[in-house]
Nucleic acid binder design. Structure first.
Lengths: 253, 253
DNA sequence: GATCCGAGGGAACTGAGTGCTGTGCGAAAG
DNA sequence: CTTTCGCACAGCACTCAGTTCCCTCGGATC
């Protein structure tokens, strides 16, 4: 709310000072042992100013998630009808990971905090939940009219978030060493493989999804001749599904 | 912890009185407008007694989730090696839905509360998160040794929870009319179809899972013992060759 | 009967979050 | 140049959640 309406150009230094002071005290004495008065005393500002910048003490731990969520929502809304929904959602998850990866030290420090303090875990869940709802809302729009569209949307959004968290947490557990992007690609590749294509499972003979026009929105994966493709599918999968899986082959298995 | 260790036979009447008083006041004046003092005054007990039975004000809204979580964990732990993991997790979700469906009026009332009050939504997320982690922990155990076992476990747990929530919420939105179990079966059927089988990607020759005949345990709704087909081909292979490979697929891997 | 013990009651305290008031300061209006 | 408006900040005072400590009471035990 505040971050979206305020001018994004001028970042208030006071906010950053509060975040820095808070994290210093959190890492020295723990989250619950640190009072808001301690934070504002270290930052040299008034107590009331803290709550001007953060609605609650917990929110100082997630200073830029509001902006990130807005960015993700905008990114999803900007996607036209031509882009494949599941891929789009996966890309939005990549955006979020990118924000974490931009400041590894900060992310790792926060990770240690949220692991220990139940209240912060709850806060993080709220944040993640909003990401998930943004994805699900987008997918619901894209799946509108399809049978079980909202169910598909909810499940896929949850799967993407779970894959993202799995990759992110393994990266955080490595203290920020290691390739977060590669881990996420692996995880999202798995999800995309599972939910590869427009719905309809074994049955449902009516829906028929007309072969899908846009074969390859990403021209990047050039067919290098010696590449070996490992395709995993179910035996009872309809043939068109296999072909589509081939066309949208993920980077690697 | 307290609920699991306490004898489940004797339910303290005071606890129920507190829940009843709280929900009366919540529905009359709203959650945030109701103080703990109001609740204990209506229940005719001391303020201290409230916090003896509930660690926080929010917890009075979810009085029996602790027990339900314990039941679910026990149910998962009781499942032997012979039962199919995904099915087991889906059944555990059915247990949870059953708890909701046992008291529709109460569940609907709570649903209206959690929709309106952000703090309660956060509490509910914490609760749901614990269910999800219980499922994921179970699946991680079952998938131990498999490549990407934890990823699979996390994603499937998230998908099951999402499907459960989708069905539950649509039932709650119908004010408890309608068939919650049928809705959940539909939703879980979708998930089970997507993540149908033990699978295991390309290689992994060491881990056991010896092609599991598994005809006996799941007789009814499972859509065929769909074996996993691993198709290895060159990326530049002509499509007709792929199709040929598919049609002449060996009986199994 | 004295003692123990556990459930409940209640005062007092800490700390989060809010409302309201005042204050300095820069910009626009007079 | 002064006034006034607006804004960011300071700080007090208040509510309420949650905790600590201590009290009472009723019943079981020795």
């Amino acid at each position: 709310m505040s971050s979206s309406s305020a001018a994004p150009a001028a970042k208030p230094p006071m906010r950053d000072a509060l975040v820095a002071a808070a994290f210093r005290l959190f890492s020295e004495h723990g989250y619950e042992q640190t009072t808001v008065d301690d934070i504002v005393a270290l930052a040299g500002v008034g107590r009331r100013s803290f709550f001007r910048y953060f609605p609650a003490k917990e929110d100082v731990v997630f200073p830029d998630h509001e902006r990130c969520l807005a960015d993700m929502t905008a990114f999803l809304a900007a996607g036209g009808e031509e882009c494949e929904p599941v891929r789009r959602v996966c890309d939005s998850a990549r955006m979020v990971l990118h924000m974490y990866a931009e400041s590894p030290a900060f992310s790792v420090q926060r990770y240690r905090l949220t692991r220990k303090v139940p209240g912060l875990r709850a806060s993080e869940l709220s944040v993640v939940w909003r990401y998930e709802r943004a994805m699900a809302g987008y997918l619901r729009g894209r799946f509108a009219g399809h049978p079980d569209g909202t169910l598909r949307a909810d499940v896929i959004a949850a799967a993407v978030v779970a894959a993202h968290n799995n990759a992110l947490r393994s990266w955080l557990r490595s203290d920020g060493t290691g390739d977060a992007v590669a881990a996420l690609d692996r995880a999202l590749g798995y999800v995309q493989r599972e939910f590869g294509r427009p719905q309809e499972t074994a049955s449902a003979p009516d829906g028929r999804t007309p072969v899908r026009p846009g074969s390859a929105p990403d021209a990047e994966d050039s067919p290098r001749p010696d590449d070996v493709l490992v395709l995993v599918t179910r035996r009872d999968a309809p043939l068109w599904r296999v072909v589509q899986q081939l066309e949208t082959a993920p980077r690697h298995v």
